[in-house]
């Protein structure tokens, strides 16, 4: 079926967009990959849609004041995935984005839209949380920002108020000795939604011991899960199989798994520690190569 009739509003500032969204009780349109599909299926029948496409300053990837990277909400997943700064400094993000759907979807879907959708199965939030991203929100009432792990509140539920628009995400500075890996486990076809995704970001000190590590599970629970207590296990240690297993065991007490078509609560709980262990070991294994590559460049 086609998309039902609606009126397209195209404000040029986010404040105006925020007012229009409130006035028409509707939602903003970014890449449209989720909304248009929902509208075709008549799950969502808005009279008005507020496009964010004409608002300047919401796109692109640029250096952040903090020394990290600032990604505009309207940047498409693909443009971020292949951005030279992302590829060289945040390969975990590039790797994660490359696993999303297909390249046609990625050229349309945006970073902001992806986060705003609040879908627990999406891949990018895992890597962004692992990298310590902060999300910036704006509305007619002003701007605010919060850690991305605090943004996801429940099943398709985020901290974003209805009149708020995601302006972008900020990544803290990267680290020469850092490495990461996103392990996407699909239980059906390779191109399907993940059953469980694990994003791992490890920083090591000069002696090759772990300084800090962040492990995030996606698709496993109602929201992305940032494992707590990882640093207590890994800090000052090498990422060995035994250490990785200890981190993996954290899922037993912290993961409140969700059942969906990709797996039952039992199955997700069973494989989550396996995938955490494997993702950690893979991230640790990759590190020297990544360092070598950076030296070469």
């Amino acid at each position: 079926m086609g998309v039902p009739r609606f009126e397209l509003l195209e404000p040029v500032t986010y404040e105006e967009a925020s007012r229009l969204i409130s006035a028409h009780e509707t939602i903003p349109l970014a890449g449209g990959t989720a909304i248009i599909s929902m509208m075709r299926q008549r799950l969502f029948n808005p009279s008005h849609i507020v496009s964010l496409h004409k608002i300047s300053g919401l796109g692109g990837v640029s250096p952040a004041k903090s020394g990290g990277l600032s990604i505009g909400a309207m940047a498409t997943l693909r443009s971020v995935e292949i951005h030279p700064a992302v590829r060289s400094q945040y390969p975990l993000l590039s790797e994660t984005l490359s696993s999303v759907a297909n390249v046609r979807v990625r050229w349309s879907a945006t970073v902001g839209g992806n986060l705003a959708h609040g879908d627990y199965r999406l891949d990018p939030p895992g890597a962004l949380i692992a990298l310590g991203a902060r999300v910036r929100l704006g509305s007619a009432r002003g701007e605010r920002e919060l850690q991305l792990e605090d943004f996801f509140r429940g099943f398709f539920e985020t901290a974003k108020e209805d009149d708020e628009i995601i302006l972008g995400v900020d990544l803290p500075p990267t680290d020469e000795e850092a490495s990461g890996h996103y392990l996407k486990f699909t239980s059906h076809a390779s191109a399907d939604w993940p059953c469980v995704g694990v994003a791992v970001y490890i920083k090591e000190n000069f002696s090759g011991k772990c300084e800090s590590a962040r492990v995030v599970l996606t698709a496993a629970a109602q929201t992305p899960l940032l494992l707590e207590g990882v640093d207590e296990i890994l800090s000052g240690e090498a990422v060995t199989e035994a250490a990785a297993q200890k981190v993996a065991d954290l899922t037993h007490s912290q993961l409140d798994s969700i059942e969906d078509s990709s797996g039952s609560t039992w199955y997700k709980r069973e494989i989550a520690p396996v995938l955490v262990r494997r993702a950690l070991l893979e991230a640790a294994r990759r590190k020297p190569k990544a360092r070598d590559e950076r030296r070469k460049n």
């Binding site: 039952s264 609560t265 199955y267």
Partner: peptide, 21 residues
């Protein structure tokens, strides 16, 4: 596959797991 392997090894998944569609 995993469930059948667990059942075969005697470590059958708990009752709560039967909610899987």
């Amino acid at each position: 596959v995993l469930r059948a392997m667990r059942e075969a090894s005697g470590a059958a998944p708990g009752k709560e797991a039967s909610g899987a569609a």
